[in-house]
Design a protein around this nucleic acid. Structure first.
Lengths: 193, 193, 193, 193
DNA sequence: TATGAATGAGAATTCATTCAT
DNA sequence: AATGAATGAATTCTCATTCAT
């Protein structure tokens, strides 16, 4: 008799959680499938009922973060009156999302590009998506004279890079209040002139 | 008669070059010692005449970049009249150094923290060194009222993060003129208020 | 469902048997794990499910012989009325045990001290244990005037050495009846005066 | 210009001494040619000017001990009036020779049979030679009624085994006076009845 | 002759993946 | 669906031996 579909999904999530934790700690190559399975309290073979390979699981993890981030950024922008507020909201949403998803964030920020070529590609696409969103804002803001003119795409990436570093800076220090966010936001908004 | 000491050193450099190239392309774990050796046109065993292990070779590479960067930054700051110029000079020096050492940069920026725990540590120490240098400048500049006040260490890291991203942004695009540097410098100096 | 525990144990024994055979034929260093595994009809990796290393397996083998010998010697001495009979029983037990465990004996007698430093140590401790047992008998027998006086420990070792040689002498000749045992026993008992 | 022949021979001896020392300490497999060469204060390649291979060097070592032992035993027997004295003289000669050639003895006694198949063969032949010498004495002595009758060859080997053990017993203890020799001789002569 | 850097075959060990139960 | 023992390809590192100098 088959388990209910929801039980299936739950176990998959459990494995993803376990994978995020193990990948975050050990890095992609040094993470063993057996350990992920053990962390999820299932047998090694069970892992392969839910993922075709270790690599696919890893890639799924990023896809997950991808969705969460874009979704939360999009939601945060809804109902923001002007571009500047949208920009601020976007930045805050990214910072908060990574704060909420520490393991996932560690995987993406630390292992990120170094692991698999495909991973690097996918990460880049997440970043590019985000960058495009920001770039549009920047362009619009620049057009309105709100911020200085300049290569929008590059500047969007610089914003992301600074955020990335802010997140890593935090990751290194055990859980923390968000008191630094203000500094980061100020830094970034100034940066854009 | 033994080969001259300089020939020895030359071969070591050759191997380091090869290693940088292979590590940059494949990442630490997927880089095979055999491939590094082949790239340097020597037999596998020869690699071990110059490095005790693959890991040591990798770590050496970072140490090398570390030295180059700090040395060039230090040199660039010499003879700069005021803090702001020192800040600018530092930023430019970092950007240029990484531009000149593409493979090394790729290893450090891409594989970086994800590879070995020791590597992560070492990288962090390079970054922290650089950050401290910057943080001092920021503090001084803030004291003089040249830039806005704020958490100097965090802001130094944000600067580094943005630079890092700028470098990655570049790394993705085949060799390029330095025309973006101005954008980056402007971004960063504005960011600091 | 996992294989029964007994099947596990059985396979371990199988591997130990294979290891004894291969070590006996080739010696520790020239014995390849792949060959041991093949001899046991399993894949190379399987070996490592049962032993952490080739060395550990080798050491296990000696521990095994150690237990068997001491156990059989102890059992043989039970119920022997006087010291002389105990002495005789001990000697016979050792000779028989090695006869029954030819491969194990070959490993211990031939590779013995030459293989691993740890192995040499362990072997020595087995020998010393045995020697102490004999030495006590010798002392007692000497005190009772049954045998000549003299350095008990050294003489115990001489007994062992002679037995060892007897075993090797036999090992060189394909399986044999125990007709030589009488000669050996006589030799040893005379030797002690 | 070629060195004098005697210089050649001297260097060969130097290498053999070094080899004996290294083999004695490390065992055949773990002894590195480079270390032997270094111990003899020559370059690695030089080793191969004097020996075709590591194995050949090892085998030479045994041949050397072989010659020394047989020569000294033969010499010691010269001028001994009767069989019993010859027997005693032989035993003493063996014990003394090994005492004088500690490294060589360690190689032969410890690594002995376990190292190379050829080594085992050669060792056996040394032992057999010695055993034959002893066996003849034993036979003669038995015929004369001086000692008990019995399988001469086996008993000769038992004598050798006991001597072997005596030597090992000694080897384990840092240099020692020959005070134990008396015990050993007494043991052996008694053993033969 | 002597040197010692270079070679490359060889072996132990790991671990993603499979599959019989 | 779940299990976990078994598999064997893959990779690092070692070291006897060679050979250009």
């Amino acid at each position: 008799m088959s388990r209910s579909a929801s039980a299936q999904i739950e176990r998959r999530q459990e494995l993803l959680r376990a994978a995020a934790s193990v990948f975050a700690q050990r890095g992609y190559e040094r993470a063993k499938v057996a350990e992920i399975a053990a962390t999820a309290n299932v047998a090694t073979g069970t892992f392969y009922l839910y993922f075709p390979s270790k690599e696919a699981c890893f890639l799924d993890l990023v896809a997950q973060l991808y969705e969460i981030v874009l979704q939360r950024v999009t939601a945060a922008r809804q109902g923001q009156a002007d571009v500047l507020r949208k920009l601020k909201a976007s930045i805050t949403a990214v910072l908060e999302t990574f704060e909420d998803e520490r393991d996932l964030a560690a995987v993406v920020l630390l292992q990120g590009s170094g692991s698999l070529p495909q991973m690097a590609e996918r990460l880049r696409s997440v970043e590019d998506n985000l960058a495009q969103l920001l770039a549009q804002d920047l362009k619009e803001a620049a057009d309105t004279g709100l911020i200085a003119r300049g290569d929008a795409s590059l500047r969007a990436h610089l914003v992301i890079g600074a955020m990335r570093e802010a997140l890593l800076y935090r990751l290194r220090q055990p859980a923390q209040d968000g008191s630094q966010d203000e500094t980061v936001r100020a830094f970034l908004l100034h940066a854009l002139g």
